[in-house]
Structures are given as structure tokens and as C-alpha cells.
């Protein structure tokens, strides 16, 4: 029991992943600044932001469901943390985890977006509901792609649904990214991550220039701080899911740590560069992108992995 609480709250759960996510978020902002020839924020900036948000007043909506409004960020934080624990534990302790945890992780990774939707609808703000409707459509478009990609990974690992088996399969036969279908999957999952993190070009649900932060428009103070923490955790969780599924997972011994950090940085660099070199897509363009092109690539990858390419 105490061990489980330690896993959930400290390592590899909440505190560790918020720290890692904060560092990744700083690197994201720093890289963005360097791309634009700016100097960029100081290293502790994400933590200053969170500290400041906890210090500020939290305003509740006058018309709207206040309890739901406040509960939604907490749900987002907890499910993101749980997903993180389930993804990281099999890498740290080989053989842990249970049968089917891949599916649990898939659902847990959807809950943050869903709770943002619920919270924004509970606030009673028209722009928030506009953002929520955009977010729902975005979820509908990328979730099918995501599950096709996961199905392909399941096929490649010899029909196993547990993350530790997937890591074991990669340790025997080399990381999945070393095959043609693995490279296709890498592209597909990279764009799914981009959409799940709501980064440009898929940030239409919180487009601050059109609908003023959309789903987050009414959140202030501590509630918004919790949302920020959930988003930092997601910024760490999704790349580590990608590493686990395609690049052989983390390792915590000797040079393994450096190698893991390198993989994480490469994925983050790709995400940031996509974010900085693209304009925001319209919703229909994003849906077409996922429904036609990404699904097509995912299906091709499934075909290739059945004939073991």
C-alpha cells in the first residue's frame, strides 16, 4: 500500500513527472525562443508559473456547475499521473504491470482531454463551449488513428497487450523503430502526440487569438495551476509512451540514462519544431489529415508488420 502510494505520488508518479514535464516545457519554450532568435525564459520558469497560479485567486463561474468545474482539473491530473505510472513502471521494474495495461493506458490518456471538455462546459462561457466542441471533434479524429497505431504495435510484439511484454519483445528483436513499419508508426504517433498535447498545428481548441484560450478561458488561480501540472505531465508521458512502444523503453543503468534522455530530447525537438514551423489548421483540415492520411499510413504499417517488414 505504502509502496503503491510512493509510486503514485513521488516516483515515477506525480512529483517526478511534474518535475520532468516542467523541464521539458522549459526546453520547449527555450527551443521556440532560439528558433525565433530570442533569449527565452529562465530555467525555473514553469515552476514560477505554477507557484504564481497557486498564489492567485480562483474565480468560480457565477452561472454554471461549480463542483464539476473544480473537479475536472483534478481528474485530469490524476489520470495523467496514473497513465505515467503505468507506462514507466514496466521500464523500471521489468516484468511488472498486468495483462492489458496498454488498453488501460489508452483510456487514461483520453481522460485529461475529456475532463477539460467537461470543465469548460460546466463554466457556462460561450467561448469555452466553442472550444469544447472543437476539442471533441479533434478527439474523434485522432483517437482512431491512435488505436490503429497501438494495434500495429500489438501485432509487432506478437499479440501481447502488456507493456512489459512489448519492451521484452524489443529487447530480443531490436527496437520496433528499426523497421519500415516502425518508421511509419513513429510519424503517425508523433502527430497524434501533437494533437493530444493540443500544440500548434492542432491547437484550435484553445486558439488564444480566436477564442481566447477556449476550453481554459474561465480557469484561474489554483484550478488553472492543476491544469498546468496535468499538461506538464502529459508533455512527459506521451513522449515516454512513444519511447516505450517504439524505441525500447527507458533504462536506468549507467549509459542507459543518457541514452534515454537523448531519445526524450529528440522526440521533444521534433514536437517543438513541428509546432514552430506550422500555422494553426482549421478543424476540417485537421480531421481530413487524421481520417485520410494518418489512418492510411497506420493501415499500411499494419499490413507491413503482418508480413514482418
Amino acid at each position: 500500500m505504502i509502496k503503491d502510494l510512493f509510486y503514485f505520488l513521488i516516483f515515477p508518479g506525480m512529483i517526478f513527472s511534474v518535475l520532468m514535464g516542467g523541464i521539458l516545457s522549459w526546453s520547449d519554450r527555450k527551443i521556440t525562443a532560439r528558433v525565433q532568435f530570442r533569449k527565452g525564459p529562465p530555467f525555473l520558469q514553469p515552476f514560477y508559473d505554477i507557484g504564481k497560479l497557486f498564489y492567485k485567486e480562483t474565480i468560480l463561474p457565477e452561472h454554471g456547475a461549480r463542483l464539476t468545474f473544480l473537479a475536472a482539473p483534478v481528474f485530469a491530473l490524476f489520470s495523467a499521473t496514473l497513465a505515467n505510472v503505468f507506462i514507466l513502471l514496466p521500464s523500471i521494474f521489468p516484468g511488472s504491470g498486468f495483462k492489458g495495461d496498454l488498453i488501460v493506458v489508452f483510456y487514461l490518456l483520453t481522460i485529461p482531454s475529456l475532463s477539460y471538455i467537461i470543465g469548460s462546459l460546466a463554466s457556462g462561457n460561450p467561448l469555452a463551449s466553442l472550444g469544447a466542441s472543437r476539442e471533441i471533434k479533434l478527439i474523434m479524429s485522432y483517437e482512431l488513428t491512435f488505436i490503429l497505431a497501438l494495434a500495429c504495435i500489438v501485432i509487432k510484439s506478437g499479440m501481447s497487450l502488456s507493456i512489459s511484454d512489448i519492451i521484452a519483445a524489443q529487447q530480443e528483436g531490436g527496437a520496433f523503430i528499426g523497421s519500415v513499419s516502425g518508421v511509419l508508426l513513429f510519424i503517425v504517433i508523433l502527430f497524434v502526440i501533437q494533437a493530444k498535447l493540443a500544440l500548434v498545428p492542432f491547437d484550435m481548441s484553445e486558439a488564444e487569438t480566436e477564442i481566447a484560450h477556449g476550453v481554459f478561458i474561465e480557469y484561474s488561480g489554483s484550478a488553472y495551476a492543476i491544469i498546468k501540472m496535468a499538461r506538464y505531465i502529459m508533455l512527459f508521458t506521451l513522449p515516454s509512451l512513444m519511447m516505450t512502444l517504439l524505441m525500447g523503453g527507458f533504462s536506468l543503468s549507467g549509459f542507459g540514462i543518457l541514452w534515454s534522455i537523448l531519445k526524450l530530447v529528440v522526440i521533444l525537438l521534433l514536437i517543438t519544431l513541428i509546432r514552430n514551423t506550422n500555422p494553426r489548421l482549421r478543424l476540417d483540415q485537421a480531421m481530413r489529415f487524421f481520417f485520410i492520411w494518418m489512418n492510411l499510413i497506420a493501415v499500411i504499417a499494419i499490413g507491413l508488420s503482418i508480413i514482418k517488414l
Partner: peptide, 22 residues
């Protein structure tokens, strides 16, 4: 906000809603 003056190095950011503003 441009590269010459860059107020983000002081941690400042332009936000779109008054609820996030300091």
C-alpha cells in the same frame, strides 16, 4: 515580444483572457 526586446526572458507572456492575467 520580438527577438530584439523579448520580454519572455522576464517570464512575461501575453495571454488572451483576463482570468489568466496578472
Amino acid at each position: 515580444l520580438t527577438s530584439r526586446y523579448d520580454i519572455e526572458r522576464f517570464g512575461m507572456q501575453l495571454v488572451g483572457t483576463i482570468r489568466h492575467a496578472d
